[in-house]
Design a protein around this nucleic acid. Structure first.
Length: 422
RNA sequence: GGUGAGGUGGGUGAGUGGCUGAAACCAGCAGUUUGCUAAACUGCCGUACGGGUAACUGUACCGGGGGUUCGAAUCCCCCCCUCACCGCCA
């Protein structure tokens, strides 16, 4: 969430920036500032009142010590009115703060100045394209290939669990492990430290990264213990730093984690969710950075370049998009999407989303660093997929299909131990 | 699942009603001494929200919430969490 200070100090700028995301914030910001004003004045009144009580209490203590019982009794009488007033003010303050907070959490993050205006995916900006689309003589979609080579069994997953929980078999299973290892090795070589976090998180963690309280419907919930299955490694990994004050010298923090991801994701249908295109459980390797605010955009560019190098090594045709205001997530300030071309479906599939959240998540997490002036400041958080497996697999299968089998890209062969899926 | 113990500042850990926002030690920061390193010594060393140009200052916070009291880290109630041992188990 945005900080009150951001809003107060630059309210016109905040309104202008939020308009890029399609949020008309003029009224709510006026309300927020008004609420904050009354919060301040109420607190001042309450503080003064409590100070008076504290003084009286000390006096009473001193009087009792001196044995002046009667005088103490008189002083006690005086505290009654004070206490009553404090109680009222406390209630008022709580109400104001709740109202203020309810308004604050409604505001999305400010988009970066480079974010193009726009409403939907149509308005996203093409940053660059790479690789070349293959010329296929036969064009089987990956769900047919999966069946033909018996590497992914969607029906079996339905039997075991339900739709969206595929079973990978044989070379298909090996390909999964190969991709995971390949991505983690590449990420650690680029300076990211590997972590293996829990796959379930508690409520506090869900709140820290913004899944709760609004988006709980998108997560699987283990009711008996009140845990949530993680929708992405971003949740546990970023929450490592919840309520943490880092030393400036520790920045940037770079972490990578492989985890399965679980998403309930009701809604879509048809070819969008066919095969590997959208699953309830899928594998993903994530990269996370905690960066100094001055250099977080350099860090973002670095992450984009790194993810690009992975897609290149996999020899996949790709493009990088800068998301427009309307297509960005609530929490992001700037997001680059990576899409790979899936040659049989003849469509672009999103495989990575790399974002700078600036201090928006850090403010929720209370993730700070201590700079030279010793004062804790909110850090910037960034994350990106590096990479999500299913759609990479879909594109690999479709783009590399030949009459002899499916060719495995060179970079992966050391990990798969085979050059062809047959 | 059973039984017991406990949650205090970055860490260890004192503190059973006012002198405690909190001892002491460790870590950290700054400095002095020293030929260097090490050691020793001195000082500083929580967070949030207010007020003040600033020095400084008010309030809150000892797992969370409520209560008793003029006054609560300390007493009472509820909740959460952690640890140990036993049982079960990868």
């Amino acid at each position: 969430m945005l900080t009150i200070k951001q809003i107060r100090d630059n309210s016109d700028l905040v309104i202008a920036r939020l308009a890029v995301k399609g949020t008309q914030a003029q009224d709510i910001i006026k309300e927020i500032i008004a609420l904050d004003d009354s919060r301040k004045s109420t607190q001042a009144e309450l503080d003064g009142n409590l100070a008076e009580q504290n003084v009286l209490a000390k006096e009473i203590g001193a009087l009792l010590k001196q044995g002046k019982k009667d005088e103490a009794e008189v002083a006690k009488q005086k505290t009654a009115a004070c206490k009553e007033l404090s109680k009222q003010l406390e209630g008022k303050l709580t109400d104001i703060e709740a109202e203020l907070n309810a308004k604050l959490v409604q505001l999305p993050n400010l988009p970066h100045t480079s974010v193009p205006q726009g409403r939907s995916a149509e308005d996203n900006q093409l940053v660059r394209e790479g690789g070349s689309k293959p010329q296929l003589s036969v064009k089987q979609p990956h769900w047919d290939l999966a069946k033909q080579y018996d590497i992914i069994d969607f029906e079996l997953g339905v039997k075991l669990t339900g739709a969206g929980f595929p079973v990978y078999k044989g070379q298909g299973a090996k390909l999964q492990r190969a991709l995971i290892s390949f991505f983690i090795d590449e990420n650690t070589a680029a300076g990211y430290t590997e972590v293996q976090p829990p796959l379930m998180v508690n409520e506090a963690s869900g709140f820290g990264t913004g899944q709760l309280p609004d988006k709980e419907g998108q997560m699987y919930h283990v009711g008996i213990d009140n845990f949530y299955l993680i929708p992405t490694a971003e949740v546990p990994v970023t929450n490592i730093f919840r309520d943490v004050i880092l030393n400036e010298s520790e920045l940037p923090v770079r972490l990578t984690a492989y985890t399965p991801c679980f998403r309930r994701e009701a809604g879509s249908y048809g070819k969008d969710v066919r095969g590997l295109n959208r699953l309830h459980q899928f594998d993903k390797v994530e990269i996370v950075q905690i960066a100094h605010p001055d250099v977080s955009y350099d860090a973002l560019e670095g992450m984009v370049a790194h993810v690009e190098s992975l897609v290149k090594k996999l020899e996949l045709p790709y493009r990088i998009l800068r998301l427009c205001g309307g297509d960005m997530s609530f929490t992001s300030a700037l997001t680059y999407d990576f899409e790979v071309y899936s040659a049989a479906q003849e469509r672009w599939l999103e495989v990575s989303s790399v974002s700078n959240f600036e201090s928006f998540q850090a403010n929720r997490l209370k993730l700070r660093y201590r700079g030279e002036d010793k004062k804790p400041q909110l850090a910037h958080t960034l994350n990106g997929s590096s990479l999500a497996l299913p759609r990479i697999v879909a594109a690999l299968l479709e783009n590399n299909q030949t009459a002899e089998g499916i060719r495995v890209p060179k970079a992966l062969q050391a990990y798969t131990g085979f050059e062809m899926i047959k």
